[in-house]
């Protein structure tokens, strides 16, 4: 069993901020727009280093998305920054028409996704954004798992032509992927090898999947653990190859079970290799106030819940 070490808890949004800082130095076409959340999105350094390429739009997200779409005309690569809720649901039609349908090279970078936003509660905790974004034709959807991966993804998407939704979070979480990783959009990362079950996880649930695999291993159950950082396009080959071997799957995400990673995996398997599946996700509900840890526990989004789901799904084989 491979060992993964938390090199020190860090927030994924800082990975975005540091990635943007690096991009600012190496790609003069990168511009950044923010809707009054510069500190929260960790965009301060880019702003200080490149004031001429940083655009404070105020609390006006619809205009921000439209401006970003327009800025691509003439060759700029705009990165927009606000919370996930205000990056998607609030501006869905602007993204749909001005970015996705128009095929604009805009990078929609969304922090504070999911329950782990915490105490601000349900008005700010979006659990529907992956679904909203993956339904848009041509939109690439990425949900990174830790600081290092978020930084690598931020840098990688600048070189990718086309609209991207990059989703990350607020709290400090385990940082365990390599600092020098080669982030490949659409390519799953196999973290553990096993034969009894496939665990497909995204975002903050990837670390929980690794913790679950440890517990399972102690009980004699071995798991394939796959980090799906890119939900669309989905790495079908990696998932099918694994499920052919294990015969069942647990999907894990900080998102509603409707519209999320789990649904994408279910669609894939039902058409190509039907297999029992359990979903670790919120159950068609809004969130609420609480600490991130309390919320993930209450809504069943942690290692213990994954272990239980594995027990259920392996019994259904």
């Amino acid at each position: 069993m491979k060992k993964y070490t938390d090199t020190g808890k860090k927030d994924t949004r800082s990975g975005f901020g540091d990635g943007l800082t690096e991009l600012g130095k190496k790609n003069k076409d990168v511009v950044a727009l923010c809707a009054d959340l510069t500190g929260s999105l960790k965009m301060d350094e880019f702003k200080e280093n490149h004031p001429e390429r940083f655009f404070q739009v105020g609390i006006a997200e619809a205009n921000m998305i439209g401006m970003a779409a327009g800025m691509t005309i003439g060759g700029k690569i705009p990165f927009t920054g606000t919370f996930a809720n205000f990056s998607t649901g609030r501006v869905y039609d602007q993204i749909r028409q001005s970015v996705a349908y128009s095929g604009k090279n805009v990078k929609i970078c969304a922090s504070h996704a999911g329950l782990t936003l915490g105490e601000d509660g349900a008005t700010h905790q979006i659990l529907e954004d992956i679904g909203l974004m993956k339904m848009l034709p041509g939109m690439t959807v990425i949900n990174t798992c830790d600081y290092n991966q978020t930084k690598a993804a931020t840098i990688a998407i600048a070189d990718f032509e086309g609209p991207v939704y990059l989703r990350f979070g607020r709290p400090k979480v385990a940082n365990f992927t390599p600092a020098d990783q080669n982030f490949q959009i659409g390519k799953a990362v196999q973290l553990q090898e096993g034969t009894d079950v496939t665990i497909v996880a995204t975002g903050h649930l990837v670390w929980e999947a690794l913790e679950a695999a440890k517990t399972l291993n102690e009980n004699g159950v071995t798991a394939d653990v796959i980090n799906i950082h890119t939900i669309k396009p989905l790495d079908a080959e990696a998932i099918i190859k694994s499920v052919k071997k294990t015969g069942c799957v647990v999907t894990a995400e900080e998102h509603n079970f409707l519209g999320g990673l789990g649904e994408s995996v279910a669609r894939l398997l039902s058409t190509q290799h039907p297999a029992p599946q359990e979903f670790i996700a919120t159950q068609d509900t809004f969130g609420e106030s609480g600490t991130p840890e309390q919320l993930m526990d209450k809504y069943g989004l942690n290692a213990a819940a994954i272990v239980n789901a594995v027990t259920k799904v392996t019994a259904r084989k």
Partner: peptide, 12 residues
């Protein structure tokens, strides 16, 4: 949506 896009293009 057009004025927003136009502002973006003008800034570029």
């Amino acid at each position: 949506q057009g004025i927003s896009a136009s502002i973006g293009a003008a800034l570029t």
